[in-house]
Computed example of a mutant assay.
Amino acid sequence: MTHIRPVAPTDAYFVAHLVDELLTELLNGELEPADRVSIAEAVLSQTSRCFGYVALEGESPVGVILMTEGVAIYAGGAFGQITELYVRPECRSGGVAAALVREATKFGKERGWKRLDVGAPDQPRWARTLAFYLSAGFVEVGPRLRLDL
C-alpha cells in the first residue's frame, strides 16, 4: 500500500535519486554529472520556499512531487509551481501520481494559492504525461521557455 507524506530535508538522498531517475528518463540517459544529493539538501532545506510529498511503498520511496511558491499579478497572487513530479515506472498507472497531485492541490489551497502550474515535457514523445495532467484538471496555457543565467 502506498503512503504519502510531506517531504523533509532529511529525505534529500532518496529525493535526489528519484529526480536523477526523472532526468535520466527525460534526457534519454544523457544526464550531465552533478552532485544532486547536495543540491537536494540545499533545496529541501529551504522549507519556506520548497514544498512537496513523497510516496512510499513500505519504506521504499516510489514517487515524489516538489513545488515552489511564486507570486504574480496574472496568477491572482500566490501560486504554486510543480518543479518535479516522478513515479518509478513499476508504480505508474497505480494512482501514485494522482495521489501526489491531490496532496499538492490540498496543500496549495491551504496556502491560499490561486493556481498550480506545471511544465509538461516535449510533445508528442511525452503525450502520456500531458494526458495525465489534463485528466487531473490542468489546462494547457502554452509552451514554457527558459533563459539560463
Rank of each mutant, 00 (worst) to 15 (best):
E57P: 03
F79Y: 15
S48F: 04
E69A: 15
G76Q: 00
S48N: 15
P61K: 05
V71F: 14
G77V: 06
Q46W: 02
E69F: 08
F51E: 00
F51M: 00
P61T: 06
L66K: 03
A55K: 02
G77K: 03
G58S: 11
S60P: 00
M67C: 14
G63K: 09
L66C: 11
G58L: 00
M67I: 11
L66T: 08
A72R: 14
Y53E: 07
G70I: 05
C50E: 13
G70Q: 09
G58Y: 04
E69T: 15
G77I: 01
A55C: 11
L66W: 03
T47W: 03
Y53I: 07
T68Y: 07
A72D: 13
Q46R: 14
R49Y: 03
A75N: 07
S48C: 08
L56N: 10
G52V: 01
M67L: 15
F51T: 00
T47A: 10
L56A: 05
S60R: 15
G76I: 05
A75K: 13
I65D: 06
S60L: 06
A72S: 15
P61S: 04
V64K: 13
E59T: 11
V54N: 08
G63I: 07
E69V: 10
Q46Y: 03
L56W: 08
S48H: 07
F51W: 02
G70P: 07
L66E: 03
Q46F: 02
V62E: 01
T68I: 13
T47M: 04
G58K: 05
F51D: 00
Q46L: 11
V54P: 09
Y53A: 13
E57G: 05
L56D: 10
I65A: 14
V64M: 05
L66V: 07
S48L: 01
A55W: 01
A55V: 09
V54R: 03
E57V: 11
A72P: 01
T47N: 04
V71G: 04
A78D: 08
V54I: 15
G63F: 10
V64E: 11
F51R: 04
V71Y: 05
I73G: 07
L56F: 12
F79P: 00
V54T: 09
T68K: 12
A55T: 11
E69D: 06
G52L: 02
L66I: 14
G77P: 09
G58F: 01
A72Y: 02
G58Q: 03
E57S: 15
G76Y: 00
E57M: 10
R49C: 05
Y53F: 15
Q46P: 02
L56S: 07
G77M: 01
P61F: 06
L66A: 12
G63D: 06
S48K: 14
V54K: 01
S60E: 05
A75H: 06
A75P: 02
T68W: 04
T47I: 10
I73M: 10
G52W: 01
G63A: 05
E59G: 09
A72H: 12
E69G: 10
V54A: 11
F79C: 06
R49W: 09
V71C: 13
I73D: 06
S60M: 12
T47E: 10
A78Y: 06
E69N: 10
T68D: 06
T47R: 10
M67N: 04
G77C: 03
G58R: 02
A55E: 09
E69L: 14
A55S: 13
G70W: 02
I73K: 13
G77T: 01
V64F: 12
F51H: 11
L56P: 00
S48I: 00
G77D: 02
M67V: 12
